[in-house]
C-alpha cells in the first residue's frame, strides 16, 4: 500500500475493539493520540465486535453478520486502525475469506481489508513515523502476540518505536514469539492447558528482569497480567500504545491505585 501524500489529512476510523471498549479505554485514547500526533483526523464510528469469537467458534453466520456491520460502519474512511493484531488480522485477513463466495460483498470486504491496519505497524509502515515523543523509566520487555506476528508480520515495528522512548530500556524475554496461552475462548475452555502455557510465559517474563511487560493485544495482556497478578508479581503490564503515547499514567492493567504522575 503506497504511503499517503505528505500533508494530506487522513480520515482514520479507530476500531478500539470490544475488549478495549469495555475494560481499558485508555488504550483507545493512547491510540487516538498517536494517530493525531501523526497528523490524522481520528473518528470513532459506532462499533461493537469484529466477530472473531464467533469466527473461531465455528459460527460463520454470526461472524458474517458482525462483519457486515463492521463493513458498513467503517468502509467510508481512508483507513481503519486497530490497537490489536488479532482483531486487525480478523478484518485484514479473514473478512475477504468470509465473503469469498458472495460477489455482492467480497469486493467490499477486500476493500476494507486492504485499508485496515494494526496501530503500530500503521504508524511505522504507512505513516512513516520514525520516533515518538515519550519517556518511560525502567526496563520493558515486549511479547509478540501471535496474530500480529504471524498474520501481519509485526515484530520490528514496535521495537523500533520503543527504541525512541526516552529512558526506556528494552530487554528481550526468552521465547517472546511463543503464544501466551490466551487464544480467546481457549483460555476458558481448556483452562488447565492455558494455565500451563501462561505460567511458562510469565516465568520467562520474570526472568527477563523487566519491570514492565508490553504487548499489542489486550486479550493477551489480560491473560498475562491476570497470571502475573495471581503469582504476586510486581511487574506492570501495559499495552504498547500507552507507553508510545506517553500515557502510561493510568494504573497498569490489573493494578489498583491512583493515577501515577
Amino acid at each position: 500500500m503506497p504511503r499517503p501524500e505528505p500533508g494530506a489529512k487522513l480520515r482514520v476510523a479507530l476500531f478500539a475493539t470490544c475488549l478495549v471498549d469495555i475494560v481499558r479505554p485508555s488504550i483507545g485514547f493512547a491510540a487516538a493520540k498517536l494517530l493525531e500526533q501523526a497528523g490524522c483526523v481520528v473518528e470513532v464510528p459506532a462499533q461493537t465486535c469484529c466477530g472473531q469469537p464467533a469466527f473461531n467458534s465455528g459460527d460463520r453466520r454470526t461472524t458474517q453478520e458482525l462483519a457486515l456491520q463492521m463493513i458498513e460502519a467503517f468502509e467510508g474512511y481512508d483507513y481503519v486502525v486497530v490497537p490489536s493484531g488479532s482483531c486487525g488480522g480478523m478484518i485484514a485477513k479473514h473478512y475477504p475469506e468470509l465473503f469469498a463466495d458472495d460477489p455482492g460483498l467480497s469486493g467490499r470486504a477486500e476493500k476494507l481489508a486492504s485499508k485496515t491496519f494494526e496501530l503500530v505497524s500503521f504508524l511505522t509502515d504507512i505513516l512513516g513515523v520514525m520516533k515518538v515523543e515519550a519517556s518511560h523509566k525502567g526496563s520493558c520487555t515486549y511479547h509478540d502476540s501471535c496474530s500480529g506476528l504471524r498474520e501481519l508480520g509485526i515484530k520490528s515495528q514496535p521495537r523500533r518505536l520503543l527504541g525512541t522512548v526516552d529512558g526506556l530500556d528494552l530487554v528481550e524475554m526468552k521465547d517472546s514469539e511463543v503464544c501466551c496461552g490466551f487464544g480467546g475462548t481457549f483460555a476458558v475452555k481448556y483452562g488447565p492447558i492455558s494455565d500451563q502455557i501462561v505460567s511458562e510465559k510469565c516465568a520467562n517474563i520474570e526472568a527477563s528482569g523487566a519491570k514492565t511487560l508490553l504487548a499489542g493485544d489486550l486479550g493477551c495482556l489480560l491473560n498475562m497480567a491476570g497470571k502475573l497478578s495471581r503469582m504476586g508479581s510486581e511487574i506492570e503490564v501495559r499495552h504498547v500504545a500507552e507507553v508510545l503515547a506517553d500515557m502510561a499514567n493510568e494504573p497498569a492493567i490489573g493494578k489498583a491505585g491512583e493515577k501515577t504522575a
Binding site: P25, G191, P192, D195, L222, K227, G254, A256
Partner: peptide, 20 residues
C-alpha cells in the same frame, strides 16, 4: 473458568465509546 487460574483486571469504569 478464567479466575480459577488467573485474576481478571477490573475495568476502568466507563467504556471507551462513552468517554470518546
Amino acid at each position: 473458568a478464567w479466575t480459577q487460574y488467573r485474576d481478571f483486571a477490573v475495568p476502568e469504569g466507563e467504556t471507551f465509546q462513552a468517554k470518546w
